[in-house]
Simulated assay, not measured.
Amino acid sequence: MTDGIVLTGLRKVYPLRGGDVVALDGIDLRVPRGAIHGIVGESGAGKSTLVRCVTALERPTSGTVLVDGEAVDAAGERDLRRVRRRIGMVFQQVNLFDARTAAENIAYPLRIAKVPAARRRERVAELLDLVGLAGRGGSYPAQLSGGQKQRVGIARALAADPSVLLCDEPTSALDAATTRQILALIRDVRDRVGVTVLIITHEMSVVREVCDSVSLLDRGRIVEHGPIGEVVGRHGTRLARELIPLPVTADSTTVEAAFAVEHTGEVFRAIGGIDGVAVAAGTVETLGGVRVGRLRLDVAPDRRAAALAALRQAGLHVTVAPGEEAA
């Protein structure tokens, strides 16, 4: 399968009077065509710079950016417009033209590309149907909900039939129910047209809901990466813990257990057979085709050493607060 996005040795340095700022520091990333890949990280990790380099809004200091085998970073001014048409963009703020209808907003990039009027109308109708807005083409942005506006934004990004769809915090301004609908739409669009999707987000719920794989950016470097099913199985890592959050409990519990199994019943039967251990809270989900969970456990002080040994023997990844292992 031809790769949709390939970044090799990507580095971006901003020279400043007080010293250089390294925004990206040697990014290597391969996103296969048709995959949905999430980029997560705290503010300042380099997510926005990464997007700008992929879209050639910024030229990298060094390294390469390939989209379906074509070097975006090396495109000259003559080729840059053509290359950018292969990349659709969806933003947190949709930025629709208030004085244009939904259909006119979607048609705008086609007008810029000088697509004939008849084909524009045909393509807009296709896209309105694709994003679930058939019959709403005549509505103005003020007449649409936040989720409907984002659907128009997705349709507009797909107007030129791009091979890559970049989504920069596409659901941050939406409520939970609308977020799920938009993520389902993104997955459906991928399935129906085969577009490669790169989602920049700080919301782990987005990654859990829709992504096939994920990368964690930290200070301009990818520090964790992989398919969702593999990442959540790396118990104790930052991504695994954030992708499988534990419920907040009133009591302070010093013992946690994590697992990735085919049948969760075996886990709970094993825990139930260990003296002095009880489940205080837990999260169990299926991510990337893997059944995974994290548990907070109450362990009787006089049974701690034996209980921890039994939990590990049962195949659970057990972590305890510093200094509590032999307490």
Rank of each mutant, 00 (worst) to 15 (best):
V197A: 07
A159L: 01
E256F: 08
T264H: 10
S213R: 02
R221D: 11
F268Q: 11
A173K: 02
I182V: 08
H235A: 00
V231I: 11
H225W: 13
A184C: 04
E262T: 13
R187S: 08
T253I: 15
S213Y: 01
L239S: 03
G226P: 02
R208M: 01
I154F: 09
A258R: 05
E242P: 15
I244M: 09
T237N: 09
G220Y: 03
E203I: 07
L243G: 03
D168E: 06
V214K: 01
E224V: 07
A160L: 15
S172A: 11
E266R: 06
D191Y: 08
A260F: 00
A240P: 05
A260W: 00
A157E: 06
G194Q: 01
T253F: 15
M204G: 09
G147A: 10
R234W: 05
H263P: 11
L243P: 04
A260M: 02
S172Y: 08
V214I: 10
R219P: 04
G229T: 11
V248F: 08
G220H: 07
V223K: 09
R221L: 14
I200E: 07
I154S: 08
E242Y: 10
E230C: 02
T171L: 08
I182C: 12
T179N: 09
L166I: 14
S205D: 14
T201G: 03
T196F: 07
V261A: 02
G233T: 00
G147Y: 05
G265D: 10
A258E: 09
G226E: 06
V214C: 01
I244L: 13
F259K: 06
L239H: 05
Q181I: 15
T178Q: 03
A155G: 11
L243F: 01
D218I: 07
D251G: 12
A177R: 14
S172V: 06
A177S: 13
G194Y: 10
L185T: 12
R190S: 09
C211F: 10
C167A: 08
S172M: 00
T179H: 07
R208N: 08
